[in-house]
């Protein structure tokens, strides 16, 4: 008889805890960042398609499904390293088939040559080109990701990719370049 009571008590406890755990799992569910979102966060969001996918999100999905992590030239080595860390795989050099790492650039339309065909506007993945049919177009520099996609559709070749100019704000204290340059920080006398 005591055996029965013991089994009964344990059974009731098991049911009770099961119910509590089950409720907690629903009530306190942690919304974890899905892997695709995390990968997408690392990618540079240029939406250039150099990886062979139409945008950064699709490539993030592809990586999550096991694609190579070295197909993103705009992100370069830094992105590959971060992806390697996230995915737990070996970092490898950038796949040259998808392009080479370059300095950051933005598109620039030579406005007096623009014929207003709107082809670049349709090509721009982030709506960074402004203009209307038969009116001159221009690039919103702050929104341009430098993806290069507007250059080919232009029938009159009036779009240049211009390297982003360094300003005193974006300067990184690379004093080693100058001969006299370093911060004097100590006095001897």
């Amino acid at each position: 008889m005591s055996l029965f009571w013991a089994l009964f008590a344990i059974g009731v406890l098991a049911l009770l805890f099961g119910a509590i755990l089950g409720y907690a799992a629903i009530r306190f569910k942690v919304e974890s960042d899905p892997l695709v979102e995390q990968i997408d966060q690392i990618l540079p969001q240029t939406q250039c398609g150099q990886c062979g996918y139409p945008g950064c999100k699709p490539y993030a999905e592809a990586i999550a499904n096991g694609d190579q992590i070295n197909k993103c030239p705009p992100g370069g080595e830094a992105t590959i390293k971060k992806l390697a860390e996230l995915m737990g795989v070996e970092a490898k050099p950038l796949d040259a088939a998808h392009g080479v790492e370059d300095v950051k650039k933005v598109a620039f339309i030579r406005e007096d040559e623009c014929i207003g065909c709107t082809k670049c506007i349709q090509a721009c993945p982030v709506d960074a080109i402004l203009g209307a049919a038969k009116q001159m177009h221009t690039v919103i520099v702050d929104e341009c990701t430098g993806c290069d996609l507007c250059v080919d559709p232009c029938p009159v070749d009036c779009i240049d990719m211009v390297p982003v100019k360094q300003t005193t704000q974006s300067w990184q204290w690379d004093l080693k370049q100058t001969t006299t340059g370093d911060i004097p920080v100590k006095m001897v006398s």
Partner: peptide
């Protein structure tokens, strides 16, 4: 600071890309 700016920019680009889609 640069990293932060870049992150802001990529976030904006993402939003614009998705809005366009």
């Amino acid at each position: 600071r640069n990293q932060r700016d870049e992150n802001d920019k990529s976030e904006k680009a993402k939003q614009r890309f998705e809005a366009r889609k």
